[in-house]
Design a binder for these strands. Structure first.
Lengths: 187, 187
DNA sequence: GCTTTCAAGTGATGTAGATCACATTCAGGC
DNA sequence: GCCTGAATGTGATCTACATCACTTGAAAGC
């Protein structure tokens, strides 16, 4: 199971067996069922999660109770309420399972230990953060410039698997469009 | 002038004089006039920029020629077309001066040298990347959930100085709203 | 000083997409 | 096998905001 993690890390930083032997015990393997929460709004955030299998959604609930999907986390993705995680404060997002999922949990302490003792790991996280930043920038731009229907079509192209796995209601929320409007696009 | 840089770095990582003496020569000081371009769409991106003084805007131009402001870069901000910078490919954004500006330029080679030889620097950039990511996430959320007028009011609260310094037309583009609509809010 | 350009306000009209309301189909729990 | 709730489709109406068209005022260039 941890092989997945090693493969994932080694896409960016090659590791010796000793190094991986040092890294691996910092992660905690956990399984969650569909609809279970990994993070709940208002609660402390203990971990950042690496998705081994399954599918999570990161959600924000506004004052009027409406839910917005900030992002989906598929296999091989890292997810958390980073703000709350890094500052060890209360979650403003919730993270829960769209499907039964297996994740690896990394505590802030372990995260810091890994970064401090293995520059490679810090490099790995920097790389991930940068890519995440660039991806968000593109998403922001798309949200500002592109019509809802085109955004949907681009999602279909770029993540056809995701569209298959996720109810349209959730896709709509992710795309920033109402359920009804999204439904009218399929035609 | 480089004092500004040292102060900025030391907000996150304390440095010895020797360390800073090693870091500093990697930066190139440059001055630009209002309307001058640091990065032009279609051209290679040589540097990431640290703004010592002045104000820059990162802009995307779509097929129909319309401009969207991805972000502003005030004093103490880092900016570039990161995608193009890291992959040493052609810019899809342009970066130009809203006001006369002084910047420090860091090449990819120097960036990599700094990260490789000083783990502190890698840590610094990781910290910056993470904060940038979280800020973008909040902006994305605001764009999806909040009305244009409220977004404007929040900008007024959070960056009153920016609103003073920047023509409304540019603010509108940054907020993802038309010039005319923004104008009707002031009343 | 004059002209040209840029920033900004404002009315009239158009439209993407929200919201509300209801029908239908489908999967799961017991 | 029945019942309940989720997921989806679809019509009618409403609204935030875009777009177009024009005016005014102020700054910049020569």
């Amino acid at each position: 199971m941890q092989d997945v993690l090693r493969g994932h890390l080694e896409k960016i930083i090659p590791l010796t067996d000793e190094e991986f032997a040092f890294i691996e015990p910092h992660f905690l393997l956990r399984k969650y069922k569909k609809h279970q929460f990994l993070i709940q709004e208002g609660m402390p955030v203990k971990y950042v999660y690496f998705v081994v299998s399954g599918l999570l959604k990161l959600v924000h609930t506004d004052d009027s109770g409406k839910q917005q999907i900030i992002s989906f986390a598929l296999e091989d993705w890292w997810e958390s309420d980073y703000q709350a995680f890094y500052t060890q404060s209360e979650a403003t997002f919730s993270l829960d399972c769209v499907e039964d999922s297996t994740v690896l949990c990394l505590s802030l302490e372990s995260y810091q230990t890994l970064c401090a003792s293995l520059p490679k790991m810090e490099h790995f996280f920097l790389e991930k953060a940068n890519r995440g930043y660039m991806a968000l920038q593109r998403r922001l731009l798309a949200l500002m410039t592109t019509q809802a229907q085109e955004r949907y079509e681009q999602l279909l192209k770029q993540h056809p698997a995701l569209v298959q796995r996720v109810p349209k209601t959730l896709l709509a929320s992710y795309l920033g469009v109402s359920r009804e409007t999204l439904s009218r696009f399929s035609a």
